[in-house]
């Protein structure tokens, strides 16, 4: 729980290099921070501010706009049960009750072992597969109580480790952009030459 690690600072600088303005990298860097600690720490937000040239308050203001950034520790698995119309009609409320019993926590709570946090989400755009849920944003469709139990068992036993990484990791595949393709943190109005990869073909 801290500032970004050395390795992540390296990645952060690479990410910043993709944007004409450093502050545009704020959201990707917040994901990086959440991946590192499972949630976004204050230290990481202050660090991101330093990296992109914003105040901590600006980073916090941006981050807190998004429900998916967590500022308090959450479980390794964040389970979002959809509560919107189609799912509700198809038994989402009952599923939520079952989940609360099975996990032994109230909606919004985290299990004592730090494994699961239970949340309700708005429509996840899988209405045809209602009721649905997401575990760390990976879908499960037409979920029955029994499905839910086996999901929890599988997660506990580590049988889904390949498919579902711990909370914070959005994707395991990381995009890398070669340095010479980054635009660098140069404001657009200061760019006077076409990027090298365009071989000078662009007219500015």
């Amino acid at each position: 729980m801290a500032r970004l690690s050395e390795e992540n600072v390296r990645l952060a600088k690479e990410i910043i290099g993709r944007y004409p303005r450093a502050r545009s990298a704020t959201i990707p860097l917040l994901h990086l921070a959440q991946e590192q600690d499972g949630h976004v720490t204050n230290e990481a937000m202050a660090h991101i501010g330093e990296l992109v040239g914003a105040t901590s308050a600006e980073v916090y203001g941006t981050a807190s706009f998004y429900e998916m950034f967590k500022f308090e520790p959450v479980g390794k698995y964040l389970i979002n049960i959809c509560g919107t119309m189609s799912c509700a009609l198809m038994g989402a409320e009952e599923l939520m009750h079952h989940a609360e019993h099975r996990l032994g926590v109230k909606l919004g709570g985290t299990t004592d072992d730090g494994m699961f946090t239970l949340e309700r989400a708005e429509c996840q755009a899988a209405c045809t597969e209602a009721p649905c849920l997401q575990v760390n944003y990976r879908y499960r469709f037409r979920v029955t109580d029994a499905d839910f139990d086996s999901l929890v068992d599988d997660l506990k036993a580590g049988r889904l480790n390949d498919e579902i990484p711990a909370h914070g990791t959005v994707a395991r595949v990381r995009q890398h952009i070669p340095v010479d393709r980054g635009v660098g943190a140069v404001p657009p109005e200061d760019v006077t030459e076409a990027p090298t990869w365009m071989d000078g073909k662009a007219a500015l």
Partner: peptide, 16 residues
């Protein structure tokens, strides 16, 4: 050093 935080009905002015 002050900024809007959160969203919608919860939007508020806050410091870090």
């Amino acid at each position: 050093l002050i900024h809007f935080t959160s969203r919608g009905n919860n939007t508020q002015v806050q410091t870090f």
